[in-house]
Amino acid sequence: MNSDADGSETRDITSAKAGDEVAFGRLVRRHEGIALRVAQRIVGTPQEAEDVVQDALIRAYRALDRFDETRPFGPWLYRIVTNLSLNRLRQRRDTISWQGTEEDPLPIPAPLPGPEAQILTRETHERLYTEINALPDHYRRVLALRHGEGLSYQEIANRLHVPVSDVKSWLFRARKRLKERLEPGIT
C-alpha cells in the first residue's frame, strides 16, 4: 500500500523535475484517484472535483522544482487539492458574502511532510483494518456503507431502518474512536 515502497515514485519525481512528462503522468495516475476523493468531499460534485484536480496537477507541475523528492508526493498534492477546493467554494459567492477578498486565494502549500503522509502505508492499512473489526457491529456497518459504498446519511438510515440522527452519531463516534486509537499514526 505504500506508494513508494520500491522507490519508483522518487525516481519519477526526479525525472519529472528534469522535464520528463511521461514520469509526471505516472505520478498523476498514481494519485489522481485519491485526489479526486479529497476534492469531491469539499466541492461536492465530481465535475468540480475533476476541475480542481486538473488545476492542482498543473500547479504541482509548475511548483515541482521546489519539491524535495525525498518527501512523499501524494500528501503534498492532496494539500494543494484541499486549498484549491476551498478556493473553489469561495468562488460561489452567490449565496453568502465572503469576508475575505478574491485577491488572496490560499497559496500552494510548502512541500513539507504533513501528518497525513502515512495514510496509505501498509502498516497503517493493517492497523486500521484491525481497529475497524474491533468496533461494535453497528459502527462497522455505518463505516462500510459510508466509506465502502459511498452512501449518504439518509441512504444509510434507509438501509439500516434507523433514524438519520443515529447514523450521524454512530459515524462520528466510530471515526473519533478510530482516530484516537491510531494516533499519532495517521492523524
Binding site: I34, R37, V38, R41, I42, P75, Y78, T82, G114, P115, E116, I119, L120, T124, H125, L128, L143, H147, G148, R175, L178, K179, I186, T187
Partner: peptide
Amino acid sequence: NAFFTALD
C-alpha cells in the same frame, strides 16, 4: 480528509 481517505 486524510483519515477519511484511509477509511475509504
